[in-house]
């Protein structure tokens, strides 16, 4: 029985389960600092998976995906600070819903406006830049470039989550892993369902899909909104962990970082962006302490090389090996 059900699990999910297991048993062997950055890695990995849902699976290249991440972070923080009576659950709901509202708005302009291809990328970039500027300019609400700090902890039932004490941090770490696992499996079933196939079909030939009766704009909008919600949640969980947010979170820096993570990890898989993010952010924490400028130079070179020679990223290389 067990063997049989093990066989039914896809290779991708097996790899994910192994990573999950490693992440779960890691805390006793690590320092507080390491747990903190590990939590950050996993949040970024969730963020990357959400971009891949619209880029890899639906063929919409967004150069402004951080808009959702940052908006999630700001929504959660502002709700916690300005509306503490609402509590953590309201704040988390905010970090999901505010990005969804933006995504709905953008879908109306972009997806239903039939803006496609490169224009889509540019407009999403412009949206992200606009929000970054807005956050900078609207000092009374967002404290502008100074940024928000400290950020109150999340509290669910009697548990508190932030990075202030080891106990709280470990709790937070497990909360993030739980969320990551949930999102992975939601996306797994989402992309392997009939609907996932529809997204692939639309990416492949929108005209044919439309002339078979498929509602292309609707299908794309759902993926876009789901991606926005996931990115928003990742951003929301990021805020109390980092204890500091600034307009940068919404802007070009993170928008393009996440593109690099997904491109290097491998599009069109869930595990690719997950692993790609963790590897790259890990390398960044190591190298940027020693050789800041050179590290980003290397990132640029990696990006160009991957795009030129391994368009399917790390996962592309690995999966070819496995098939051989």
């Amino acid at each position: 029985m067990l063997m049989k059900s093990l066989k039914a699990i896809s290779l991708e999910s097996k790899i994910f389960l192994i990573i999950l297991f490693i992440l779960l048993v890691l805390p006793p062997f690590t320092s507080m600092y390491q747990i903190r950055i590990l939590s950050k890695f996993v949040l970024f990995a969730i963020f990357a998976m959400s971009l891949d849902l619209i880029w890899g699976y639906s063929g919409m290249v967004s150069f402004g995906h951080a808009a959702f991440f940052g908006l999630g972070a700001y929504s959660l923080t502002l709700l916690l600070v300005r509306f503490p009576e609402g509590g953590t659950l309201v704040a988390i709901a905010g970090s999901l819903l505010v990005p969804v509202v933006l995504a709905l708005f953008m879908s109306f302009f972009l997806i239903y406006g039939k803006v496609s291809g490169v224009y889509f990328a540019i407009i999403t970039l412009v949206v992200s830049l606009t929000l970054e500027l807005l956050c900078t300019a609207w000092y009374s609400l967002t404290k502008g470039l100074t940024g928000f700090t400290p950020i109150p902890p999340l509290s669910i039932f009697y548990l508190k989550f932030d990075a202030d004490t080891t106990a709280r941090l470990v709790q937070y770490y497990y909360l993030i892993i739980l969320v990551a696992a949930l999102i992975y499996f939601i996306l797994h079933f989402f992309t392997r369902s009939r609907y996932g196939l529809l997204l692939q079909a639309i990416k492949d030939n929108p005209k044919r899909a439309q002339f078979l009766g498929h509602n292309i704009a609707g299908a794309k909008t759902i993926a876009f909104i789901l991606a926005a919600a996931i990115a928003g949640l990742a951003g929301g969980l990021y805020a109390p962990l980092e204890d500091f947010i600034s307009p940068q979170l919404l802007g070009l820096v993170y928008s393009t970082q996440v593109i690099i993570w997904v491109a290097v990890g491998g599009r069109n898989t869930l595990i690719g962006p997950f692993i790609g993010t963790i590897i790259l952010v890990y390398l960044e924490t190591i190298f940027s302490g020693i050789i800041v400028e050179a590290w980003y130079l290397i990132i640029g070179i990696i990006l160009v090389v991957v795009v030129l020679f391994w368009p399917d990223g790390l996962m592309g290389i690995v999966s070819k090996r496995i098939r051989k």
Partner: peptide, 12 residues
């Protein structure tokens, strides 16, 4: 699936 509603495709 052309004539299905999107809700009949999601997670199915």
């Amino acid at each position: 699936y052309g004539k299905h509603k999107i809700s009949e495709l999601l997670f199915k």
